[in-house]
């Protein structure tokens, strides 16, 4: 759950994706292998080496108009299914863990 703001060096320890927020509305998006953005995690390009992660991030950051605040996030792969790799990314992917409106 380390803040992306504290993500100083790019070293990944497992499968990862690049995520950001779409510029015009702020919605959570994932970088795809087709050099675009998708709101669906399963569409994300998955990288497994630090070099690939750096390259994917550089490409993502260059698309400053499409999305903002790009960073590398861990994912888990279970039988071909991609899941967020930590609580922060789970919340970004699935939404808040609380009832939105007052009880």
């Amino acid at each position: 759950m380390t803040s992306p703001l504290e993500q100083k060096k790019i070293r990944i320890a497992g499968p990862s994706v690049v995520t950001a927020n779409r510029t015009w509305d702020g919605v959570v998006v994932y970088r795809t292998a087709q050099q675009g953005w998708s709101t669906v995690l399963s569409d994300a390009a998955i990288v497994s080496t630090s070099d690939d992660a750096r390259a994917l991030l550089a490409e993502s950051v260059a698309d400053d108009v499409g999305a903002v605040g790009a960073y590398i996030a861990p994912v888990e792969l279970n039988g071909g299914v991609i899941k967020p790799g930590n609580l922060r990314e789970h919340i970004r992917s699935k939404g808040v863990t609380i009832d939105l409106l007052p009880a």
Binding site: M1, S3, P4, L5, L87, R88, I91, V96, T97, I98
Partner: peptide
């Protein structure tokens, strides 16, 4: 907290609830 904030390390609201 972590339900909304990009700086947070942990959730606040569910604890309060």
């Amino acid at each position: 907290g972590l339900d909304y904030c990009s700086l947070a390390n942990a959730r606040s609201i569910p604890i309060a609830q």
